[in-house]
Design a protein around this nucleic acid. Sequence first.
DNA 1: TTGATTTGTCCTACATTGTTGCTGTAAGGT
DNA 2: ACCTTACAGCAACAATGTAGGACAAATCAA
Lengths: 112, 112
Amino acid sequence: MGRETPPALGEFEQMVLLAVLCAGRDDDAYGLNVLAELETRTNRRASRGAVYMTLDRLEKKGLLSSYLTGPTPERGGRAKRCYRVTKSALAALRASRRALTALWDGVRGSEI
Amino acid sequence: MGRETPPALGEFEQMVLLAVLCAGRDDDAYGLNVLAELETRTNRRASRGAVYMTLDRLEKKGLLSSYLTGPTPERGGRAKRCYRVTKSALAALRASRRALTALWDGVRGSEI
DNA sequence: TTGATTTGTCCTACATTGTTGCTGTAAGGT
DNA sequence: ACCTTACAGCAACAATGTAGGACAAATCAA
């Protein structure tokens, strides 16, 4: 993909990244949790697979880091893989936002 | 891709759509023009092919409509294919923006 | 202790998007 | 004629987006 500047984020990647950030504020940001955050905030459905895949790719690109928790004493409380966004991710997010904002600003007032 | 709600826009599609809107305010929104708009606004490089491809796909999805102009009396002034965004495109853009905004709002104040 | 249930992870397989680089076309200039 | 400028468009490949499971481990209930 882009090879000049930081390799531009896709739309879903962007949302997942933001959802990790949101989810990580109180709870841990792990797969299902991130999915839930994404769905409630954006009112858009996504599948588990989509989220896990994206989480995986983002980690490979160095935009997320992860660690495993121990199992919790709840019904089915398995070990979770929790994510944190990295500095690069924050930079990439800000860049994406700036770009989109600039375009939206150019439109404001006309037919939108 | 998504088959539930309107088939979510990709990131680049979104930007191209917005660039068409921007470019169409004064001039005609045709390929190279849209590319220029995109690059100046977002400060991000893209190739001609990428833009033409995307324009094409968006038209096939009913998010853009196009018409041909006659040639202009300039050096190399060929006929241009000009684009206009459709109602669906506007709806899709607004939806994308809403989703992103909701996520950004959920983050505001913390580590961003 | 076997099995159902819950909470989670991860993979397979495929559709859609993103991108480059090149080819093609027409008009004006010289 | 031939070069240059201003466009359009394709082929081919890389990366992303997505659904739909299969699998793993813990707890509960009999």
